[in-house]
Amino acid sequence: MSSTLRQLIWPLAALALLLGFNAAFHPSFFHFQIHDGRLSGSIIDVLNQGAPVLLLALGMTLVIGTGGIDLSVGAIMAVAGAVAAAALREHAPVALAIAAALGAGAAAGVWNGSLVTLAGIPPIIATLILMVAGRGVAQLITHGETLLIKSDSAFNVIGRGVILGVPVPILIFLAAALGLSILVRLTALGLFIEAIGGNEQASRYAGVRVGPIRLAVYLLMGVLAAAAGLIDAADIAAADANNSGLYLELDAILAVVIGGTALTGGRFTLLGSIIGAIIIQTLSTTILSFGRNMPVELNLVIKAAVVLVVCLLQSSELRRLLTRTWRRSQ
């Protein structure tokens, strides 16, 4: 337990710093209201708007845990949104449209996983292929247009609905987080993932079935990305093949790294990635809530600084340099 806490201390400190900043300069950030039977407030906004990145970060944690990476999740989001919107246009029932989109995500995951496990292509290249081609597939489905979804469709509940006062995207994320935590910590799956990421050769000799587990992890990632795509499409009531999930794969990877999971694989922490994703979303919301006199694009520059600082904090080389200069000064 203490090792888990130690692992989470930096991301938690960063989040505390960010929230403290808001508390000092923007106290209304912490206000909650009930508006038309719907919980609202900046913190609810963070979780609600952050739901797609949170879902992606969950899956990405497992993928990175095996020592892999998935660059195609933004493109999979676009494909899933396009599939759902196209199905709804053909008057398919909402449940069928959702199932088709999740199925497309699963298929994309199996494609990625097969390239990594069967063909032995490094994950960064294997998933690059779908990152390039995926948006083309999404545009093929939508015929290059932004497919609108009827605003009164029951489908839009996924993005805009409220159950017991809580926005549905948050509930979807909570369900996925709970399900995955149970899956990786109460079964041996989490252990196997860490074994593969730690030392693939050794885990193979120890009898871990590396191929099927890798495949399963990419499949899970695909389904989660599809769910994120559904939330995005339902939120704006349209499938935008060009912009849905654009650069979100990078945010998801960032969330995982900020959360304390190393890109080299091995030990992973779902909770850390969740905190990482919340940090990223809180940053954007903070900048937005300062609004008028702060341009939105500042977000990108601040994100760059955050990436760099987090990377440097995790760099053992920097620690070695610092301890050396400290000792010398003694």
Binding site: L250, K303, A304, C311, L312, E317
Partner: peptide
């Protein structure tokens, strides 16, 4: 080179910085 960081992450930070600066 100095901090032995993955090129992927460092150039990602560079991307955010350059795009943000261009837009600002």
């Amino acid at each position: 080179h100095v901090f032995r960081l993955p090129p992927f992450l460092v150039t990602l930070a560079g991307m955010f910085l350059a795009r943000g600066a261009a837009l600002l």
